[in-house]
Amino acid sequence: MGGGNRVDVGDDPVRRRREWRLERTAWALAALLLLLALAGLFGGGPLSWAGAGSPDGVVHLSYDRFVRGYSPTTLEVSIAPQAAREGRIRLGVSQEFLETVAVQNVTPQPLRVVGGGDALVYEFAADRAEQPLTVAFDLQAEQTGLHRAEVGAEGAQPVRFWQFVYP
């Protein structure tokens, strides 16, 4: 090989070791991130599944505590039969919350939706008097950040909850 077998590639032991340490730290962080993601910190897992009920037990919610923006999420509201008035159940959802999401679908379909004040009122038929009514709101979060919401049936105490939306 002629004049000597040293190949200079600009290798520097100190810098190399520093780079390795940085890489290892990044890997550990990535592993931690994925574990937290699996646990549901970024939506859709045990950390994210949440429920809340009104103090009088009439309204109960199931929702995601953590949601990713522009991806689907469901808010499920269960209303006890004693909230029915003349065969109707009226469910109010705070306007402030509805402004941050797009409501894709409401199942069952409300008979009518009335606006006004600080809440939108969805009116449902309550044909079966003994069973609770479960309403599913298919939502898509459109504004990132922390949102507070209030859901309540007419004649019952409201439920408050918060939801965090990632960008």
């Binding site: 890997w27 990535a30 993601a37 960008p167």
Partner: peptide
């Protein structure tokens, strides 16, 4: 899923 968070998670998972 059109979120930045979702895309980041996919990328990090693939690399990991």
């Amino acid at each position: 899923d059109f979120s930045l968070t979702g895309a980041t998670l996919v990328i990090v998972t693939l690399v990991a």
